[in-house]
């Protein structure tokens, strides 16, 4: 994969193919982020496309000394939050009813699935900033400094949001009777 800045410079100088290379490089990360923000495949697909269109359109205004990845996540964050704000009444995550199978280990698989659904639901109920901090830090693997740039706040604020988010999610699981053993 080529360096981001090289690709951006190629696009600005008129090479349209560079756009495709940039999208291919980051499409999985942007989609995963959108899915974790919305919990819906179709919405995540649309938001991924929208994020890239906005990013490419604004590419000429990108300052080359900044990180393209952080800049792209910032656009993705804004696109996703706008979408969530416009669809405030978005559907609740429905917890699927467990079906008891005969396979060995089926019960533990069901419990595991239920636990994951509760985590997803808990994540969805978190305030936007807490949700963002946990998605960017834990899932997307961004550093504290990168997360602060994407969220547009201080590193201290990111740490606080992240800490509160983890605490709240653990409480939710505890309330539902799931024990996370060390």
């Amino acid at each position: 994969m080529k360096d981001d800045i090289t690709l951006i410079k190629r696009y600005i100088s008129g090479d349209e193919e560079a756009v495709e290379e940039l999208v291919m490089k980051y499409q999985k990360q942007v989609y995963a982020f959108a899915y974790r923000m919305t919990n819906n495949i179709e919405e995540a697909k649309d938001l991924t496309q929208e994020t890239f269109i906005r990013a490419i359109k604004g590419l000429r205004g990108f300052r080359m000394e900044a990180s393209f990845k952080t800049w792209l996540y910032r656009i993705a964050k804004n696109t996703n939050l706008n979408h969530i704000r416009q669809n405030r009444h978005h559907k609740e995550i429905k917890l699927e009813k467990p079906t008891i199978g005969n396979q060995r280990g089926a019960l533990s698989a069901i419990i595991d699935k239920e636990k994951k659904d509760h985590i997803k639901k808990g994540l969805d109920e978190l305030p936007a900033r807490q949700r963002l901090s946990i998605i960017l830090r834990a899932y997307e693997g961004l550093s504290c400094s990168e997360t602060s740039k994407v969220m547009g706040c201080s590193e201290g604020a990111v740490k606080a949001h992240y800490h509160n988010a983890v605490k709240r999610l653990r409480e939710i699981l505890k309330e539902k009777g799931y024990e996370i053993r060390p």
Partner: peptide, 9 residues
């Protein structure tokens, strides 16, 4: 996706 983004832009 890459082609669609390029086309839309």
């Amino acid at each position: 996706l890459p082609h669609r983004v390029k086309g839309a832009v």
